[in-house]
């Protein structure tokens, strides 16, 4: 009885929370539609502060930031949404639009990069799991009197899926070591070395996306932008990927 009651309480609480989040989401949309972008940002931020990580929230808050003329934060949230919805045309279009508005140059990914980014990390894991289950199923089939040759040939399909998924997973895992950063300050100039007063190499516009190459413990990050590498102080950039 006690267990039933506690389960009912938990269910009711979660429904209430979900309802409150739904309310905030709707209010934020109303504020956005009314042109009160700062208010919309605040409402979306509240949802995110509750630990909600739906890419839709990141996308919408990015839109609100964009309209509120905060390009770096807009790009930050668009990119965050893109990690979870890499094929979503709206996310891609808006990120592209925001980067263009910032005057930033977008990286041109190679074919393999595009292929591996066609699924999100979770999707690659689902694909790998499906491949794994299919492989187990086929191996179970091998125990039964069936055409062994055909089954062995069929095993190549899940093996291929697992292999491709591993590469996809590794691609996303690279973000741990080479995370994406967004430039949050104007006059960001990448230098040739991780020392103040080092020779200026190239300028990066505010709102541009850069990829980390290496890091210096004294507060410098070697970034790659438009095919060039240079050192930026961390105060100029904000880390996006985990």
């Amino acid at each position: 009885m006690k267990l039933f009651l506690s389960m009912c309480t938990a269910l009711a609480l979660s429904s209430l929370t979900a309802f409150a989040q739904q309310e905030q989401f709707s209010s934020a949309q109303i504020a956005y539609d009314a042109g009160r972008y700062a208010e919309a940002v605040l409402l979306y931020e509240k949802i995110l502060d509750q630990g909600i990580a739906n890419p839709e929230v990141h996308y919408n808050i990015a839109n609100a930031y964009f309209k509120d003329s905060d390009l770096p934060k807009a790009v930050w949230h668009y990119q965050k949404a893109w990690y979870e919805m890499p094929r979503d045309p709206d996310v891609k279009a808006n990120l592209h639009f925001a980067l263009n508005a910032a005057g930033a140059i977008e990286a041109k990914p190679a074919f393999t990069e595009r292929l591996l980014c066609s699924l999100s990390k979770s999707e690659w894991i689902i694909a790998a799991t499906a491949g794994y289950l299919l492989l187990i199923l086929l191996l179970l089939l091998l125990q039964v009197k069936t055409s062994r040759r055909l089954v062995v040939k069929l095993c190549l399909v899940p093996l291929g899926i697992i292999l491709l998924s591993t590469f996809g997973w590794l691609r996303w895992n690279q973000l741990q070591t080479h995370p994406d950063w967004v430039v949050v300050k104007t006059e960001a100039t990448a230098l040739f070395g991780p020392v103040k007063g080092s020779t200026a190499h190239f300028k990066i516009p505010i709102g541009a996306l850069v990829r980390q190459r290496s890091i210096d413990p004294k507060g410098w990050v070697e970034v790659e932008y438009d095919g060039k590498q240079g050192w930026l102080e961390t105060e100029y950039i904000s880390r996006i990927s985990p």
Partner: peptide, 28 residues
């Protein structure tokens, strides 16, 4: 670029069916 960009950003997305937190995203 010209084709994709249009004149403004794409409108907001509707509320998700399920609210997910960070741990839900890292279900694996």
């Amino acid at each position: 670029e010209t084709k994709i960009l249009g004149r403004d950003i794409v409108y907001l997305k509707p509320a998700p069916d399920h609210w997910k937190n960070e741990s839900d995203l890292n279900w694996y």
